[in-house]
């Protein structure tokens, strides 16, 4: 564990907590894409399949449970909780996210580090996570103005993988044989997708107004 990875995990945790805070306290999911949340639930479900078979550390297992629990409960809230569901912007959240799942699965079957069931699904989760934010970014374009909590959520979610890139650079220079092109490229693509959001976020943030 290094400071970059810890900062990345904490940023990721913060993004999930901000979203849960928004949905649970003000009972609103305005501006949040249910489709992105569904993709993230699939990402965690396929990435953490080894949660019971391979124990890394208490921290690792605890964080996996937090991410699994929070992503599925956010989907549940947005789908079935009456008050929250009412604030869901169904007409605008129309990105065909299922069209992202199949290509990621095919790509994982073609490009992976080891051809085993767990490894292919793990690689699938990497590819899917790289594009999972697309429905949210499209929704953002359509709803123009979003509240600060949603803006913070997206900012933290984009930032965590950027910190992971610093973690991979650090581990590449400090650990022999630590080379994982698939993880690195997927992480880079994921972070680059946030580039224009970061641009507007900092513009607004410096301006001191909400994120538009």
């Amino acid at each position: 564990m290094n400071i970059f990875r810890l900062a990345g995990d904490m940023t990721h945790l913060a993004s999930v907590l901000v979203l849960l805070l928004k949905i649970h306290t003000i009972k609103s999911c305005a501006g949040v894409s249910l489709r992105t949340q569904e993709l993230y639930a699939i990402v965690f479900a396929t990435r953490y399949l080894d949660i019971f078979t391979s124990f890394v550390s208490v921290y690792n297992t605890f964080m996996k449970l937090v991410f699994l629990g929070s992503s599925f409960s956010i989907v549940w809230y947005m789908r079935y909780h009456k008050a929250v569901h009412r604030t869901y912007d169904r007409e605008q959240d129309t990105f065909r996210h299922w069209f992202l799942v199949l290509p990621c699965l095919v790509l994982a079957l073609l490009i992976h580090e080891k051809f085993t069931f767990l490894e292919v699904l793990w690689t699938f989760s990497l590819y899917l996570e790289a594009v999972a934010i697309l429905p949210q970014l499209v929704l953002l374009q359509r709803t123009r103005n979003i509240d600060n909590l949603t803006g913070q959520y997206i900012f933290l979610l984009g930032g965590y993988r950027g910190l992971y890139i610093l973690n991979w650079i650090y581990r590449y220079f400090t650990e022999p044989h630590f080379v994982h092109w698939i993880t690195w490229i997927a992480g880079l693509v994921q972070t680059l997708l946030y580039a224009d959001f970061f641009y507007y976020y900092f513009l607004r943030f410096i301006g001191g107004r909400g994120v538009e």
């Binding site: 080894d50 890394v56 690792n60 650990e175």
Partner: peptide
């Protein structure tokens, strides 16, 4: 163990 190292990340 290298494989394990890769999957020691979230």
């Amino acid at each position: 163990h290298i494989q394990q190292r890769l999957h020691d990340e979230l």
